[in-house]
């Protein structure tokens, strides 16, 4: 990397944010909170990975996420409630993939606009989720979950270790997949559809596969979250799209180069960083009712940074640079 002023400034800025985060973690948050935040961050890293596939790789906004997250919660919590926590997670992944296929088919075969297709799936899933759970919320109190099973093997930090292993496996699988022929076809579909069809790739099928993987991951995240918190709620998916998007955008501040590895790292790292920012805000006394508002604001700020930078530089040029007209000359 060449060391010009711009890269130095951006590096310094990143270092500053990192130091700031670490200082907060060390001084403000207790050890249990830090561990809990890490765990939650890892659970939601799966969500961010799913959204990374639809938003970044396919470059299509997929709004079914709010529904498929709850679908994961519902399937996972019902199976765990009946004593099959691991089967619940596996079925949740499958169900999420199926729901993703529906969105994909709506977009490619029925020419429904992507945003509308997502909303349709999400709305339909609302009823389906209610039907699966049969009541608005379920507690897994005193029931076996993936985590209580893993406690025997991993000891004191079992939750953190379980989440870590799951995310590591999911990330590694995703990385490997995106480097295969099928994975490269998927990436190319989001990158240049003309080229893809001219290269004898069925772009419709690639999109459906992409949505299936994306929503399987989101549902996986929901399934993990339900067993992690030992409870399931039919409203738990609300706002998950924005949460996932916020995670990715935060991660991309640190992993700027557009490679697959960077994208995956950005999603995972961003999901964890997002939880820490949230934990800090709560620590400062933010009402927990504001979490969704908070994530919405983070997304707006993160997306508008380039525009704000632009206003700032033009302002700077106008005021401080001679010869460009403006205040100094006047």
């Amino acid at each position: 990397m060449k060391l010009n002023r711009k890269t130095v400034i951006s590096l310094l800025l990143k270092a500053l944010i990192l130091v700031f985060l670490i200082v907060i973690i060390n001084t403000r948050l207790s050890e249990t909170v830090v561990e809990g935040t890490f765990e939650k961050g890892l659970v939601f890293a799966l969500l961010a990975l799913g959204i990374f596939i639809s938003f970044r790789i396919l470059d299509i906004p997929d709004l079914s996420v709010d529904g498929t997250f709850t679908l994961g919660v519902a399937v996972s919590v019902m199976n765990a409630f009946n004593g099959n926590p691991i089967q619940g997670i596996l079925l949740a992944i499958l169900a999420g993939g199926l729901a993703g296929c529906v969105t994909g088919v709506l977009i490619t075969k029925f020419n429904v606009q992507p945003i509308l297709a997502g909303i349709i799936t999400m709305t339909a899933l609302y009823s389906i989720n209610l039907k699966i759970m049969d009541r608005p919320n379920i507690s897994l109190y005193r029931k076996d979950t993936l985590f209580t099973i893993m406690e025997k093997y991993f000891g004191a930090h079992y939750k953190l270790i379980t989440c870590g292993i799951v995310v590591l496996i999911a990330g590694a699988l995703m990385f490997t997949f995106l480097k295969t022929q099928a994975g490269m076809s998927l990436r190319a579909t989001g990158d240049n559809e003309y080229m893809v069809r001219a290269s004898s790739i069925n772009s419709d099928r690639m999109k459906i596969i992409g949505f299936a993987i994306a929503n399987a991951l989101v549902s996986f995240s929901g399934a993990m979250y339900a067993q992690y918190s030992s409870a399931g709620d039919t409203n738990s998916g609300t706002g998950m799209l924005v949460v996932g998007l916020a995670s990715i955008i935060i991660g991309e501040i640190f992993f700027t180069r557009h490679t697959i590895l960077n994208g995956i790292l950005a999603a995972v790292f961003g999901a964890i960083a997002y939880r820490f920012i949230l934990a800090f805000a709560m620590n400062l006394g933010m009402d927990s009712n504001y979490t969704k508002l908070f994530s919405a604001i983070i997304v707006v700020i993160a997306i508008s940074i380039p525009a704000i930078k632009n206003y700032f530089t033009t302002f700077y040029k106008r005021v401080f640079k001679k010869g460009n007209g403006g205040a100094v000359d006047a």
Binding site: T180, Q181, G183, M184, R187, A188, D191, N192, S200
Partner: peptide, 25 residues
């Protein structure tokens, strides 16, 4: 495909007409 490398683009083109499998790209 602009965001993919030269060799990845060639890899995609090289599998033209074949089934895209889970083999390395």
């Amino acid at each position: 495909a602009p965001n993919m490398t030269i060799e990845e683009n060639l890899g995609l083109a090289y599998s033209r007409g074949k089934r895209r499998s889970l083999m390395p790209g």
